[in-house]
Design a protein around this nucleic acid. Structure first.
Lengths: 167, 167
DNA sequence: CTTTCTGCAAACGATTTGCAGCAGC
DNA sequence: GCTGCTGCAAATCGTTTGCAGAAAG
C-alpha cells in the first residue's frame, strides 16, 4: 500500500509525466517479486512502453511501440493482466474497440482523462486540487445511497485536435 | 436536437426518476418517426423496461424484465442500437462483462453513476449544481490541450450495500 | 535444476449481421 | 401490399486459455 516513489503532481507542469524510469523499474520489480513473479524481459518492455506513452495505450499500440521485441499478443495481454494484479498497471475501458492500459496511479499520480469520441484517443488530464476536494465531499452523499466509495473516474469527452481538423 | 420534454432535475429530489411514461413514449415515437422508423412493440417494450429500471441495465436484465415478451437477444441489441442512434438511449460501458443501457439524458436529466466494483451494478447519482459548474470551468482547460469538449462522465466506484455484506 | 514465462493455436463470449418470414401502417 | 422489423443461426473480434518448449534464478 505505502510506496515511497509516488509522484505528486502539482498541477503547474503541463508536460506528460516525468516519472523516473530507474525508480519505476525498481518499484515494479519489487511489487512483482513480492508476488513471487519475475520481472521478465517482456514485462519490462511493457512497462517501458507504458511509461513512454504517457497516456493510456491499446494493445496494438503497445505491440507497435515495442517493435522488434517480438512480443506475442497473448503474452502482452497476459503480462498486462498480471501487472494489473500486482498494482502496477490499470486497465482503462474506453468503450471503443480496445481496452487501454496505463501505469497505476500509485506510480504516475492521480489524474483524469480526455477522451476523443472520434478516434478513441485518451490523454491524461489533471484537475485543480479544489475540484478533487469537491469530489471527496460527494463520497458522503454516495454513502447515503448505501455505496461505500473507493475511487472515482472523471472523463471529459470531446474531439482531439487531429479529429477536429477532419470536419 | 431541440426537444420540448426535456426533464430538468433540480437536485433536491432524491427519488429515482419520475419521468412521465406518457410523455416519454410520445417523445420516443416522435424521434423514431423523424428517422422514418416505427415504434414497434419490441422497441416500446425496451423503452418501458429502461424507464422502469431507473438505472443502466444490461442486456440480460432487459430481457429478463421484459419476460414473456419473447424478445430475441439479437433484436434487443438491434433495438438498443437504433434507439441510441435516434438519441433515445445511451450506452454505458461499465467495463464489466456486459454493456449497460439507459434512457438518454435528454429524457431523464443529467446525472452520474455509482458503480459497484464487485457486482457491476450501476445506480444513478445526481451531484450539486455547484459541482457541475466546477466541471464547466474545466472545459476551458481542456481546450488548452487541443480538445474540444462536448460532454463529461463522472463515476464513483465502490461497493453497493449488497456487496458490502458479502465481505 | 526447478519454477515461471512465452508463443502458438484453439477457445470464449459479448455483440453484430445475413436472411427469410412476420408485422406495422 | 409495401417496407421495415424480428427471430434464428452463423459470423466477428477483442480477449483469454491450454499446452509444450524456452528462460529466469
Amino acid at each position: 500500500m505505502s510506496e515511497g516513489s509516488v509522484v505528486v503532481m502539482d498541477g503547474s507542469d503541463p508536460s506528460p509525466d516525468p516519472v523516473d524510469l530507474e525508480d519505476l523499474h525498481v518499484t515494479v520489480g519489487r511489487r512483482l517479486r513480492a508476488a513471487s513473479m519475475r520481472y521478465s524481459r517482456s514485462r519490462f518492455s511493457v512497462v517501458e512502453v507504458l511509461a513512454a506513452g504517457g497516456r493510456p495505450l491499446t494493445l496494438p499500440e503497445i505491440l507497435a511501440a515495442g517493435h522488434g521485441s517480438g512480443l506475442a499478443q497473448s503474452s502482452a495481454y497476459r503480462n498486462l493482466g498480471e501487472l494489473v494484479e500486482v498494482g502496477v498497471v490499470r486497465r482503462v475501458e474506453s468503450g471503443y474497440e480496445h481496452s487501454r492500459f496505463e501505469l497505476h496511479e500509485s506510480l504516475t499520480g492521480h489524474h483524469h482523462h480526455l477522451v476523443c469520441i472520434e478516434c478513441g484517443r485518451v490523454d491524461d488530464f489533471e484537475v485543480p486540487d479544489e475540484f478533487e476536494a469537491g469530489i471527496e465531499g460527494l463520497v458522503g452523499e454516495a454513502a447515503a445511497r448505501g455505496f461505500r466509495i473507493e475511487s472515482h473516474r472523471f472523463d471529459m469527452l470531446g474531439r482531439c485536435s487531429t479529429c477536429q481538423e477532419k470536419v
